[in-house]
Simulated assay, not measured.
Amino acid sequence: MVVDLAEVRIADTHRSIRALETSHPPVFYVPPQDTRQDLFRQSGTRTWCEWKGAATYWDLRIGDRTAVPDVAWSYEDPSPRFAALSGYLAFYPSRVDRCRVGDEEVVAQPGDFYGGWITSEIKGPFKGPPGTRGW
């Protein structure tokens, strides 16, 4: 899978972890060594997942400016059940130019809260659009 922004490949891996949660498409978590770590800076945004724990968010920086705020998130110290995700980055497809799984371009999950990756094999309905967050 790959993630691109402005002709820059910011992630490229065959070692991602595909996570599934109720009522939304998969999220792919990328090992940090398979990303352009030099382009990321921790943002001040934090959220809490009842399953995985505290999420840290990452801004994509080009030069000395933030190009895309909160482009990705990670669980630096996830709950034991999700320890395999520790430090891996998950990207919002809606905040970059292109995400691909294999040869297929991903469609971003609707809404701004979830970061699911929709491919032709994934069928909804999904959380995300207005009125669906409380399912």
Rank of each mutant, 00 (worst) to 15 (best):
V2D: 12
V2H: 09
L5F: 02
L5P: 01
A6M: 07
E7W: 10
V8C: 10
V8H: 11
V8I: 12
D12I: 00
D12Q: 03
H14V: 09
S16T: 02
S16E: 10
I17Q: 10
A19D: 09
S23G: 06
H24N: 13
P25Y: 02
P25Q: 04
Y29P: 01
V30D: 08
V30K: 07
P31C: 01
P31T: 01
P32Y: 11
P32L: 15
F40V: 10
Q42G: 00
R46K: 15
T47K: 05
C49Q: 00
C49T: 02
C49V: 04
C49P: 12
E50Y: 13
E50L: 15
W51E: 08
G53W: 10
Y57E: 00
W58G: 06
D59I: 02
D59A: 10
G63F: 12
G63S: 03
D64K: 13
D64C: 10
A67R: 12
V68K: 04
D70N: 13
V71A: 01
V71T: 05
V71R: 00
V71H: 01
A72H: 13
S74M: 09
D77G: 13
D77N: 15
P78W: 06
S79G: 14
A84E: 11
L85S: 00
S86P: 00
L89T: 03
Y92H: 12
V96M: 05
V96E: 04
C99R: 03
G102P: 05
D103Q: 14
E104R: 11
E105H: 10
V106C: 10
P110G: 02
P110S: 11
G115R: 03
G116T: 01
W117R: 11
W117G: 05
I118Y: 01
I118P: 08
I122T: 08
I122C: 08
P129K: 05
P129R: 12
P130D: 08
P130Q: 13
G131Q: 08
G131S: 06
